[in-house]
Write a protein that binds this DNA or RNA. Structure first.
Lengths: 160, 160
DNA sequence: GTTATGTGAGTGACGTGTCAACCAGGTAGA
DNA sequence: TCTACCTGGTTGACACGTCACTCACATAAC
């Protein structure tokens, strides 16, 4: 906070890490997103929502619970659900116990979508990331992720 | 492509790496973007464009060259420049040698913006990423980035 | 020179995400 | 009960990125 007269610019090694960081995520994610879209007609956001709902009993969940589990803002989830609802892969339902509340439910189309998409998606993730890296590199990624998660106080470890 | 009867699901170690991958980037970038916006009123996209232009002679560059250097689509850059131009931090100029061509130029406001923003941005990057990780972890990130860059044929290594 | 093709750049529609505002329904205190 | 506040959820405006399309100018073929 003191107006540093000399900012601590990055060393070369730090720059390498920073540039790698900036580049690799868009690079890999764009490939995986492209595959997902072509193979299954889904966006990554669609897939994330579907995969969570696909593994709950009744294929349904309270909207606020879903948002919290995914660490999405309510607003973001609401917009996303609106788009997904228009395409018929999820449906909103009022909940009896709380006049304000609502649930999302997978439609049959939605169940089929995630069932069909999952194997292809795994292959894509392998092809563009997992199978490219050595076990040591994968472990390093997991470790860095762990450090950062702690740093940012994102407690939960569960699945996506 | 053969309809795999049994998809190769991820092992636990692979899942750890994959989930870490999915989480870390948004987590860290959101923090850095927030800092940038609060400290300097710039988006990351703004900053990227400004920082490239800030280190060219004349603070100007041919639009297509800028797009290629940044690995952005022309369209993306065009939209971005439109927004930046409206805020007065860059200006478009026609180029004499080619009736189709155009250049972007930093305005005085733009020069001031990047000059003021850079030190704060470095601090932010340190705070949210670089200073948190060990040299070994930074090196691991750089290494992974290198592997992926090769895999995706993104040849150039230069700066952002 | 005229025509075909290529290239630099901008545009429009749409999906996505953020923020701030809003609204309806709950809850608690007077 | 009335009021104040909280909470679940939606909405609108806007920033950003992609894709497909367009338009103007350049270049090469004839």
């Amino acid at each position: 906070m003191t107006p540093a007269s000399e900012p601590r610019w990055l060393t070369e090694a730090e720059q390498d890490a920073w540039y790698a960081w900036r580049r690799m995520f868009p690079l890999v994610n764009a490939e995986i997103a492209r595959d997902l879209s072509q193979d299954s007609g889904l966006s990554e956001a669609d897939y994330d929502v579907l995969s969570v709902l696909g593994s709950t009993e009744g294929h349904r969940m309270r909207i606020s619970a879903l948002a919290e589990l995914m660490r999405w803002s309510r607003s973001r989830l609401s917009h996303q659900l609106t788009r997904m609802e228009q395409r018929g892969i999820v449906r909103r339902e009022e909940v009896a116990t709380d006049g304000r509340g609502a649930e999302v439910v997978l439609t049959e189309t939605g169940v089929a979508a995630i069932t069909d998409a999952a194997p292809l998606h795994v292959e894509s993730v392998r092809r563009h990331l997992i199978d490219i890296l050595t076990p040591a590199q994968l472990q390093a990624l997991a470790e860095v992720g762990e450090v950062l998660r702690h740093r940012f106080g994102a407690a939960r470890k569960g699945r996506d």
